[in-house]
Amino acid sequence: MPIDRSWIGRTGEPVVMHVERGKIREFARAIKDADPLYFDEEYAKREAGGIMPPVTFLQTMAHWDDGRGRVRPPMDLKRTLHGEQEFEFLRPIHAGGVLTARTRVADMYEKPGRRGGTMTFVVMETEFTTQRGELVARARQVGIETGQVVKD
């Protein structure tokens, strides 16, 4: 399917995300991380001003999106890979915080696949702001739709 570059620049609806202590615990356990910063309120207060979410935690915004925050050109999940992911932190994030996430399609481009077909790259950027409008983090994701079903 040829890419539809009119998707570039499109934005999803803002997603309001509560940074919850229980979700942080669940997420930390899922990545097998026992750092007390994620579990122990007193320790976390002393070390970091409160419980903080793990580095890759902002991925959990998926739980807060009813579908309207998501802006993604149609991709076939059977042929889609997560190519790259980046997080940038500008201010500390703590449990109890409420963030607003805005996602836009930053870029789309094609490359010939190594095993034939065309690979389509979709770059999505999300900005996370506090309720006072301060930018606290950015996420950048590159999704790749391969020309054929993905095999190693």
Binding site: F27, A30, I31, K32, D33, D35, L37, E47, A48, G49, M52, P54, V55, T56, E84, Q85, E86, F87, E88, F89, P92
Partner: peptide, 21 residues
């Protein structure tokens, strides 16, 4: 997420400014 722990064990979570994979 597992890989990020190599960084947080070394510098502590609050110190992380950028993480890219």
């Amino acid at each position: 997420g597992i890989l990020s722990r190599v960084v947080t064990r070394f510098v502590g979570r609050p110190a992380v400014r950028r993480y890219r994979v």
